[in-house]
Design a protein around this nucleic acid. Structure first.
Lengths: 201, 201
DNA sequence: ACGCCCGTCTGACATTTGTCACCGTCAGCT
DNA sequence: AGCTGACGGTGACAAATGTCAGACGGGCGT
């Protein structure tokens, strides 16, 4: 019997996944949470074998939760379950100690299979996504370039970014320029989009 | 017994929702599809009472599918089920003939309740979202302004937008300027984000 | 200890973008 | 007929954005 923890911010999806997984005779959902920062506490009290973590969650995201989980509750293996199969996400997931990575448009048997493998100690990733990730390499952005892109994301002006990061406008422009070049884009908006799609932010 | 059609592009979510709804004794899932342009055909062959439609789908989106469904298969009532409760989405949903609107972070009982009400001929919307929608009013953008914003979305330059829409650069700048003003933004990127959040695009 | 690369930071310069005033056409409304 | 508003366009100007050369300091190899 595999004991499961479900973490997803959308209550309907959480319940629906619980219903789906309950159809498998060897699965038991022992806890469900809607925030990343509730994962560890729930894992401590209910002793799940596998934690199914969505990435998009309030509090801390699923990738960060996987990292904390690996440190604090090593008996519980993290399996990332997400909408977007972005190379950077998979990379960060594996680096932070997750044991598997499944995208939400996979067929349900694949999820069940992944859970059983992870519970048995294996690591599980979509081969196609793994290939993409290896091919695309790690993020080429420096820490500062990443900061500036993140701050630019909502459509902020250079002055606003500079104020938020305590930098000169000239410096901000320079980082943006570097980030634009590295993303292969021709302006700020495209750079933000590209970096986001790669999971670099 | 309420006969249901499920349309969502993510297979795992589709299966999970089917499992969840199957728990209710008076529901029967008679068909599931992963593309908007398969909805009508499935509705014709399986005669569902209610069609649960996600908005984000390949082919045509759920809102357009609801419109076609209302025309072609009037016996099947459309219920929009989506991640984002954007005012413009709700407005378009109701205008295109959908009978209900539920967001994906609602509790599962609310979905079941909504389905039963829609099946019974009622209209169902989240009161808070309905208030937002009425307060925000319809989109202030003209058709052309909307086109230009959509073309600008991926981070295109003025020249690229002009080429795609067969317009002069000056004209594109004029429309962008007007759209920026109407969105209450201070640059293109922010205008795109704002308009997107409102469901104007 | 020495150069060397890399990341951080900055100001100067060219280009792009956003704003404004204005012209003409067309369709719908009164 | 006259008015209004959407559409397409031009030209000019100010402001924001993107590019470049370069300064400074920390780590790394030899």
């Amino acid at each position: 019997m595999v004991r499961l923890l479900l973490a997803d911010d959308q209550e309907l999806i959480r319940s629906a996944l619980a219903a789906l997984l309950a159809l498998e005779a060897d699965f038991e959902v022992v806890a469900t949470v809607g925030r990343g920062d509730e994962v560890v506490a729930a894992a401590r009290s209910h002793h799940p074998d596998v934690a199914l973590l969505d990435i998009d969650m309030p509090g801390i995201d699923g990738l960060a939760a996987a990292g904390v989980l690996a440190q604090e509750v090593p008996g519980c293996k993290a399996l990332i379950l997400t909408t977007f199969g972005r190379p950077g996400y998979l990379r960060r997931a594996m680096e932070s100690g997750a044991r598997g990575f499944v995208v939400k448009d996979a067929p349900p048997e694949r999820l069940a299979d992944a859970i059983r493998r992870v519970a048995a100690g294996e690591r599980v990733v979509d081969p196609a996504l793994a290939a993409d990730t290896l091919a695309s390499g790690a993020s080429p952005l420096t820490a500062r370039e990443r900061d500036v892109l993140v701050a630019a994301r909502p459509g902020a002006t250079v002055a606003e970014i500079a104020a938020r990061l305590f930098l000169t406008e000239g410096t901000v422009r320079n980082y943006l320029s570097a980030a634009i070049a590295k993303a292969g884009a021709r302006n700020r908006a495209e750079a933000v989009r590209r970096a986001d799609e790669q999971g670099w932010l």
